[in-house]
């Protein structure tokens, strides 16, 4: 589904990603872990198409298409969904309006008619139930005055609405208490199918108790320096990142 080859990216001439290689197949869950500043969030931004970062080398193919050639909105319409670490507040724009606009743009891209108002509301209702989001959150303006947990739940709700092929969860666990974490993780698990894939970017192992990864990659200084199964996450939790840094420096 996703093939990343020798990906280099920089911001303000500072190289953050220095040769990432990664292949993700449908149905898989990949965790990307690593110390602060390793480039985890940069990777997710680059994949979603944030033009703050400049890709200097490498290729990314998504279902056979050159992902890097597409603007962010087309990447989203192709099925890439980035769950933001810091979702943006948009006062005055209702969730309903926002979701309808986004969903219909996806449909247009895929040569589908816009959803009727009643079908759309039904879909909102179904997905809300699926991800256990409070029904009154969707009556408010996008993320306005939402707590940290509410914002993250709202991201998962949007992911459900837009029916992604590849979900990139950027530090979705940060700032969540254990109950909110469980709800968010349950939402992600329910949305998982054999046809879609998930990248979980996290600093801590705890989220991976709930969203169990098939692979764990350790990102350090802009490269994937170690790959293993879910037990690698436990090892990192126990020993920290120092041994990896050390291994890498040596």
């Amino acid at each position: 589904m996703l093939v990343i080859k020798d990906l280099h990216a920089k911001i303000d001439n500072k190289e953050i990603l220095r040769g990432i290689n990664l292949e993700i197949k449908a149905g898989e869950v990949h965790a990307i872990m690593g110390p602060n500043g390793a480039g985890k969030s940069t990777l997710s931004s680059v994949l979603a198409g944030n033009d703050k970062f400049e890709v200097s080398e490498g290729t990314v193919t998504f279902n056979g298409k050159d992902l890097l050639a597409l603007p962010p909105e087309d990447r989203a319409r192709e099925g890439v969904f980035l769950s933001f670490q810091y979702p943006i507040e948009i006062p005055g724009v209702s969730m309903v309006n926002f979701m309808r606009t986004a969903l219909n743009e996806h449909r247009k891209y895929n040569n589908l008619e816009p959803l009727s108002a009643s079908d759309f509301l039904k879909k909102m209702r179904d997905k809300k139930n699926l991800v256990e989001i409070d029904s009154n959150l969707t009556n408010r303006s996008v993320n306005e005055g939402f707590s940290g947990g509410e914002k993250k739940k709202n991201e998962i709700f949007q992911m459900a609405m837009l029916e992604h092929k590849l979900a990139i969860l950027d530090e979705t666990d940060s700032g969540l208490d254990i109950d909110a974490l469980r709800i968010v993780a349950n939402g992600v698990n329910k949305l998982k199918t054999k046809e879609n894939a998930t990248i979980v970017i996290t600093h801590y192992q705890r989220l991976l108790d709930y969203i169990v990864p098939d692979f764990v990659h350790v990102l350090y200084k802009g490269r994937i320096v170690k790959t293993g199964g879910k037990e690698l996450a436990l090892e990192l939790e126990e020993k920290g990142y120092d041994w990896i840094k050390k291994e890498f420096e040596d």
Binding site: A48, E73, V93
Partner: peptide, 21 residues
């Protein structure tokens, strides 16, 4: 802008939503 575009919204529509906000 990036947040809205990452949801599949056109840049022109995203601008309108943000100005309105």
């Amino acid at each position: 802008m990036f947040y809205l575009r990452a949801r599949g919204i056109n840049p022109s529509e995203a601008r309108i939503l943000l100005m309105y906000a």
